[in-house]
Amino acid sequence: MWEILDLELIASGLRLSTPLILAALGGMFSERAGVVNIALDGIMIFGAFTGAVVAYETANPWYGLLAAMALGGLVAHIHGIASIRYQADQVVSGTAINLLAIGVPAVLSNALYNSTTVTPNIQLMLPIIHIPIISSIPILGTLLGKYSILVFFAFAMVPLSWFVIQKTSFGLRLRAVGENPEAAETAGINVYLMRYYAVWISGLLAGLGGAFLSIAHGSSYVNNISAGRGFIALAALIFGRYTPKLTLVGCMIFGIADAFQIRVQGVIPIPVQFIQMFPYVLTMIVLAGLMGRAHVPAADGIPYAQAK
């Protein structure tokens, strides 16, 4: 059993943490601006479906990637309109999108391909990048040498997100709007616009995370492809205290847990269903243990009525 604890496990974990990282970073933008985005899982499913369909129809995975991002942004925008303009309960709005995500891809998939559960395999997946010198070094090569391009993109998004949030005026306004929207509006910031931007960015990234599942990690859309990863990403975000660096650590922990449960199936004498529960149980433990200690943005989840 101990032979499964090798570098390949960590490499698989890094691969599996990619959609979590993208969705969690997206959630971070939204939560820091004061809009709870429970819809990450639903947006990932929409992104995965759109990416697979467009990549298949155009025989180009990059078009699928762009379409997945765009649709993720638009779906998140619907959540934004409900939460920001109409001040609906943000959790309810997000849950509605998750429920839509269960049904709409199945209906569209049936209409297009006569199958409610799976789309056709795409002709060309996203490329695997081999870093020339590193891939030949014994340990580093296994850990860093060979990944899909989206894996590198996701890890590059972490310092970029940190820079945008902490070091730019856009990030400062975003944080101000999430902590004290009244004070931000007094300072001349358009609170609605900043929140819309934040929710839109969260949709773009979550859509990208979903597209990874169907265009890079797999080769088609399968029903329930996200398997609750959007919620795990949210848990990783809370674990990471809404900061990019710790969120990355949280996502990697969950990714490695996911890789572990895949490898351990059939090796240890525990029913597969119990092993498959492992990442989700870990999520619950993390949420129960760390929720109280995370600094939630002060105005998170509170609808804001703009002064007239």
Partner: peptide
């Protein structure tokens, strides 16, 4: 309005 602006930014 911001709703339309986001759509414009997407496309």
């Amino acid at each position: 309005p911001p709703e339309l602006l986001i759509l414009l930014h997407t496309f």
